[in-house]
C-alpha cells in the first residue's frame, strides 16, 4: 500500500532530514514509525502525502508514484498532522463538508459517516460552532473525523494520540483495528512506545534520518519491551538499517 524506495530529503540550506529510507507498509498493516524529535518522521510522512517535494528516491501508494501522479495518491490517503491546524474560521460541520466536497463524497454517505464518528467521539454538539473555539483535543477529534469521511485506503497520522482524552484514544484504536480488518493500512508516528508495542503489527525506528530497524513488532521486541529496544538502538552510533 505504501512503499518508500531509497527516499531521501534535503532541505534548503543543506540539512539532510531523511537518508535513503526504504519501507513497505502492506494492506491491513498497522505500522508504527518511531524516532527521536527531529529524526525525520514528519518529513517522511509529509513527503508521502505530497506535501513536501523530494528529489531522491521514490514513494509509492497503491503502486502509484507520489511524484508522477500526486492527485491519484492523495485520493487514496488521509493525513492527520501532529498539530491540528484546521480552518479556524469555519464551523466544525462546514469543515467536514469542505473535506467531503474535495474528496467527492456524496452527501448521503458523508452525513452518515459524520453522524457515526461525531457521535462516537462525542463532538456532535460542537459541530455547529467555530473551530476557533475548540480545545486541542476537539480539533484533533475533528481532524480524525475528517480523515475518515472518504474511507481512505491508507491513513497517515503524525502523533495521533497527543491531546486526546483516554476514551477518545481508546475509540481511535478501535477505529484503527476496524480499518485494518477491512484491508486499509495505517502508518503513524508516535512517541508513546507502549501504544506502539500493543497496537502495531509492524514497527520502524528511525534515527538521524536513517532507518535503524523495521519489521514485525514481535520480532523486533522479542521478550523485552519496545522501550528497551528503542533506547538501545537510539544509543547506537549512526543508523544501520536492518530488517528484523
Amino acid at each position: 500500500m505504501l512503499r518508500f524506495c531509497d527516499f531521501s530529503k534535503t532541505y534548503k540550506g543543506g540539512k539532510r532530514a531523511v537518508d535513503s529510507l526504504s519501507l513497505h507498509v502492506e494492506a491491513g498493516d498497522l505500522y508504527g514509525f518511531i524516532g527521536h524529535n527531529g529524526a525525520g518522521k514528519t518529513t517522511s510522512l509529509k513527503a508521502a502525502c505530497g506535501i513536501l517535494d523530494f528529489e531522491e528516491g521514490n514513494i509509492f501508494i497503491g503502486g502509484i508514484s507520489v511524484k508522477d501522479d500526486p492527485m491519484a495518491t492523495k485520493k487514496m490517503i488521509a493525513y492527520i498532522p501532529d498539530n491540528p491546524d484546521l480552518y479556524e474560521f469555519m464551523t466544525g460541520i462546514a469543515y467536514l463538508n469542505f473535506i467531503g466536497d474535495v474528496y467527492g463524497v456524496p452527501a448521503k454517505e458523508r452525513n452518515e459517516r459524520i453522524g457515526k464518528y461525531a457521535d462516537m467521539f462525542e463532538i456532535s454538539a460542537d459541530l455547529g460552532t467555530q473551530i476557533a473555539s475548540y480545545s486541542h483535543g476537539m480539533k484533533q477529534k475533528l481532524a480524525i473525523i475528517s480523515a475518515l469521511i472518504h474511507k481512505p485506503k491508507l491513513l497517515i497520522l503524525d502523533e495521533p494520540f497527543v491531546g486526546l482524552d483516554p476514551k477518545a484514544s481508546h475509540l481511535l484504536k478501535q477505529v484503527f483495528a476496524e480499518m485494518c480488518a477491512e484491508g486499509s493500512a495505517i502508518f503513524f508516528s508516535t512517541h508513546v512506545l507502549e501504544v506502539a508495542q500493543k497496537l502495531c503489527n509492524k514497527i520502524a525506528i528511525i534515527k538521524g534520518g536513517k532507518l535503524v530497524v523495521s519489521g514485525k513488532t514481535e520480532e523486533i521486541v522479542g521478550d523485552g519491551s519496545l522501550e528497551e529496544v528503542f533506547l538501545e538502538l537510539a544509543d547506537m552510533e549512526g543508523g544501520e538499517a536492518g530488517e528484523a
Binding site: F89, N111, G115, T129
Partner: peptide
Amino acid sequence: AVRRKYKSSEKSSGIMLALMKKDMKR
C-alpha cells in the same frame, strides 16, 4: 460560543465551489 446542533448538508459541492466557499468564509 453557543453549542447548537449542526445541520447536515443535503447537497455536495464540486471542488472548485468548495474551495471558493472556504476562501469566502475566511
